[in-house]
């Protein structure tokens, strides 16, 4: 598994700008405006990726957007992508039906540190749709459960109706070897779980040290990092997945620059010390 992960990190394509047709096997509505699309390569060849990587998804004639891979890295040949409809391209991708074709380039970018995390406690902290890019890491950790210490999954979202992968979170919560804490920003009275930002879950989590993987809106990640540091996590053990506008995914188009970093090839997963200063500059 590890060698596969490392291998797929070094993926290189003959023509990295040529999109590859994939057939839609399933379109699953997750929550309002967010769908998970299951895809298979039209050419029948496999597709390998490492947790945390993304692809450039192409809707015929409409355009291309970077989308995180949300599926299981061990399921070779199947690609799952979770898309939130926020504009023309993502809306078109959310509407695809079985047997439709979409284009895929990638996978691109740096992975979550699931390999260096072996032997450590791991805390995964997600906000909103930020759970999607972390799901491949969760699959990987659970598949290799014995190789890791304690695992806590902390998830915050807007309201109970917006909980992504709800049934999966519930089934993970039922496991004895995994802690799952979920909070929402506001709820009605029928909600019995925590209400408050995801940062308030951190002091309650079973994992108190080790590696933290964080994905969500940038402001959520800033406050989460601060809380983690206050709790005693080492800065270089905190990893964030950044989001930027990308047109190419391979460092040619310049759009995703964040200071000296190209989020597409130096990220999207960064160790916190590598982007700490950049996160403090507005409009960088």
């Amino acid at each position: 598994m590890e060698s596969q992960l490392l291998e797929s990190e070094q993926t290189s394509l003959a023509d990295p700008m040529a999109t590859r047709p994939f057939r839609v096997a399933k379109n699953q509505r997750e929550i309002d405006g967010t769908h998970t699309i299951e895809l298979r390569p039209a050419d029948g060849d496999g597709f390998r990726f490492a947790p945390g990587q993304f692809t450039m998804m192409y809707a015929f004639g409409i355009g291309e957007v970077p989308i995180s891979i949300s599926g299981d890295p061990a399921r070779a040949g199947t690609l799952e992508q979770t898309i939130r409809s926020v504009g023309a391209v993502s809306a078109a991708l959310c509407k695809v039906r079985r047997d439709d074709t979409v284009g895929i380039r990638g996978p691109f970018g740096t992975p979550w540190p699931v390999v260096p995390a072996v032997g450590n406690d791991v805390m995964l902290i997600a906000g909103g749709i930020g759970l999607a890019p972390l799901r491949p890491a969760i699959y990987h950790l659970l598949r290799n459960r014995a190789r890791y210490g304690k695992i806590s999954i902390l998830y915050g979202t807007r309201q109970p109706a917006d909980i992504l992968f709800r049934s999966e979170l519930e089934s993970w919560r039922g496991r004895f070897d995994l802690e799952v804490l979920v909070t929402v920003d506001s709820a009605g009275r029928d909600w019995r779980a925590p209400v408050g930002p995801v940062t308030t879950l951190i002091p309650r989590a079973a994992v108190r040290e080790g590696i933290a993987m964080v994905c969500g809106p940038e402001i959520m990640m800033r406050f989460t990092v601060q809380t983690l540091l206050d709790r005693g996590f080492d800065a270089d053990q905190i990893f964030l997945s950044m989001e930027r506008n990308m047109k190419c995914g391979i460092g040619f188009c310049g759009h995703c620059q964040m200071g000296p970093a190209f989020v597409c090839k130096d990220g999207p997963v960064f160790a916190y010390p590598d982007i700490e200063k950049l996160m403090r500059v507005r409009g960088i």
Binding site: A18, F60, D100
Partner: peptide, 16 residues
């Protein structure tokens, strides 16, 4: 960069 051609069934092929 590419031209994509779509058939009646909705599948498309890509010509780099």
């Amino acid at each position: 960069l590419v031209t994509a051609k779509r058939d009646a069934g909705g599948a498309f092929t890509v010509d780099a």
